[in-house]
Write a protein that binds this DNA or RNA. Structure first.
Length: 563
RNA sequence: CGCGGGGUAGAGCAGUCCGGUAGCUUGUCAGGCUCAUAACCUGAAGGUCGGAGGUUCAAAUCCUCCCCCCGCAACCA
């Protein structure tokens, strides 16, 4: 049987994540993992913080901390927030772990033995005042092409020309502002991607029609342009030191060890329980594993080209990605979310404002799947009020109250069904299939829209059958309607569970008889008879609260939403 | 000619592969219902489908050219 390995792109440890990070990979991966588990599939959901590299070193300096402590601090904060959002990782690890180091070394040595690692001398910018080498984008100066004076060492934002830091006129350090800059020659190790190009191209060719168009076309684009040798080491202190003579004072480049982190973190998971877990059964010679990756669109080249090539170069049979879900970006009220400017809604704040499920639902219903999408508190409040309060919450509330008023706190029996129920069964079947198919294809907006249609269907059913009238003359059929409605509520809990786990659990708790939140099997005519007459239930407060217009106004001010 | 994505009612989107009178949600307006969180249900109004040309009996959809927005370009999801 197929085992599902699910990975979300590893969030960079530096700073706090915002809604864009959540919807870009973490949340859809979680929804998919929950959906598969619900269907009884074997799932391993892996994620963790990506920790190495210059931004961490600089961030630690800024906070006056040791980089190890700094990463630990932010790693823990990430963990806290993801728990708050109920992300159901089987393991949330770190790319700086010993386990990852072990795998990185293993892969590096295999590549080296296969003649895929070569030495080159490169020119790097060194800043004596910062006491460090500067990444290209940390060098600023005047563009030699257009004269723009804030051009960065990798590219001029004004004329869009790609630059080398050495091209810049009057270069200075972005960090210290110092123009005391040296160009130093330094030796680095390169991965010979061109030697792997053919093999990689053949493999990618097999993904045509299987991967989403964005992923496939981006991969083809890189191949078409021809792969270049790629530096995998850096002159930094924070990272895994390179286990090769003459390079021990350098570390691996973060983009080399980060994707390997998926494997390293799996080993972290396995090491917690070595008698029952084995990382190799997921990653090596494991044809029964289907690996689904979630990432923002900017990450696609790494996951379709560099990382697969790295694994192929070892000559071993590593698990390669079977399906990539690439997400576009979520914008904030017309602009970008920004970590550095702290613009937008960050996860810690989000949780203090509203329950996780409000966010989870909105983000998945508006996931940036085919295009960038935008968050604003108006849109957010509109969806929460309409979908969650009016359509779902109110349906549950009106059914529970009606039963409470007419039958006490026990579910009435199901009597003979009429054409209305038969129609309901047929329509329910159609929508449940639509929902499941969309989930299988990882089309989240479509799935959520089918889910919503199911909620509307319930209201529709009640409006047509008018149980409040029927009960006055025919309590048997009135009971049948309300029994059916109660079964719809259980169905809603099941289908909502991947997206809104807390809400699903609350609904589940209404039923004092235990009903599992598993995937409904058979047809609606079967599973809408799960709850039988006489079962007790608990009346509760409404599940959701509306977001009032004055609240929206306050939130906009508080989070600097302009426009 | 760097690459990719997008432009469809006030707003947010589907439909484009495979041509057949333009659809969904929200918002607006009218009606119904009164079990329910002023919720729910039904109906109406609202679009020259970014622009121009072409193919066709027929184009949002196929072809050509152009305009605009967004992202990426190997160190900011």
């Amino acid at each position: 049987m197929t085992k599902h390995l699910i990975t979300s792109a590893l969030p960079y440890v530096n700073g706090l994540p915002h809604l864009g990070h959540l919807v870009g990979c973490l949340l859809p991966a979680d929804v998919y993992a929950r959906y598969l588990r619900q269907k009884g599939e074997e799932v391993l959901f892996i994620c963790g913080t990506d920790e190495h590299g210059t931004p961490s070193e600089v961030g630690a300096d800024r906070e006056g901390m040791d980089v190890v402590d700094y990463c630990k601090k932010y790693h823990d904060l990430h963990v806290q927030m993801y728990q708050g959002f109920n992300l159901s990782f089987d393991y949330f690890g770190r790319t700086s772990s010993d386990q990852n180091k072990e795998i990185v070394y293993r892969i590096f040595k295999a590549l080296d033995q296969n003649g895929l690692i070569t030495e080159r001398t490169t020119k790097q910018v060194y800043s004596p005042d910062d006491e460090r080498y500067l990444p290209d984008s940390y060098v600023m100066g005047t563009c030699p092409h257009c004269g723009y004076d804030k051009a960065k060492g990798d590219q001029c934002e004004h004329c869009t020309k790609v630059l080398d830091p050495t091209d810049l006129i009057h270069p200075k350090s972005v960090l210290s502002g110092s123009s005391n800059i040296e160009i130093r020659e330094t030796k680095h190790l390169f991965l010979e991607l061109p030697k792997l190009e053919k093999e990689l191209a053949l493999w990618i060719e097999t993904k045509k029609g299987l991967w989403p168009d964005i992923a496939y076309s981006i991969a083809c684009k890189w191949l078409k342009e021809g792969l270049q040798e790629r530096g995998i080491t850096r002159d930094l202190k924070w990272g895994f030191s390179v286990p090769k003579d003459g390079f021990n004072d350098k570390v691996f480049y973060v983009w080399f060890d980060a994707p390997i982190g998926y494997i390293g973190i799996t080993k972290q998971w396995a090491d917690e329980c070595p008698e029952s877990r084995n990382w190799e059964t997921w990653w090596l010679n494991a044809p029964d594993v289907r690996h689904t990756e979630f990432m923002g669109k900017d990450n696609i080249p790494f996951h379709t080209i560099s990382f697969p090539a790295t694994l192929k170069g070892t000559g071993e049979e590593w698990t390669q990605v079977a399906f990539l879900k690439g997400m576009n970006y979520l914008n904030y009220a017309g602009g970008k979310f920004s970590k550095s400017a702290h613009r937008g809604v960050f996860l810690d704040d989000a949780l203090t404002e509203f329950p996780a499920d409000y966010w989870r639902y909105w983000l998945m219903a508006n996931a940036p799947e085919s295009d960038d999408s935008s968050f604003s508190f108006d849109l957010f409040a509109g969806t929460v009020n309409k979908d969650l309060n009016d359509v779902l919450g109110n349906f549950i509330n009106r059914v529970l109250k009606m039963i409470g008023n007419n039958f006490g706190n026990t579910v009435p029996s199901l009597g003979p069904v009429t054409e209305e129920e038969e129609n309901l069964y047929a329509e329910t079947d159609r929508l449940v299939h639509l929902y499941g198919d969309a989930m299988n294809r990882l089309e989240f907006r479509k799935a959520i829209s089918a889910l919503r249609e199911l909620w509307v269907l319930g209201n529709n059913y009640i409006a047509k059958t008018e149980p409040w009238k029927v009960l006055k003359t025919n309590s048997t059929y009135g009971g049948t309607i309300l029994n059916t409605a109660m079964n719809l509520i259980l169905l809603y809990a099941k289908l909502s569970a991947p997206v809104m786990p807390e809400t699903a659990a609350k609904i589940q708790a209404l039923f004092l008889t235990n009903h599992a939140l598993d995937w409904p099997t058979g047809t609606a005519a079967d599973y809408l008879k799960t709850i039988r007459g006489g079962e007790p239930f608990a009346l509760t407060e409404p599940l959701f609260k509306k977001i009032l217009p004055e609240q929206v106004t306050e939130l906009k001010l508080k989070y600097k939403e302009t426009e």
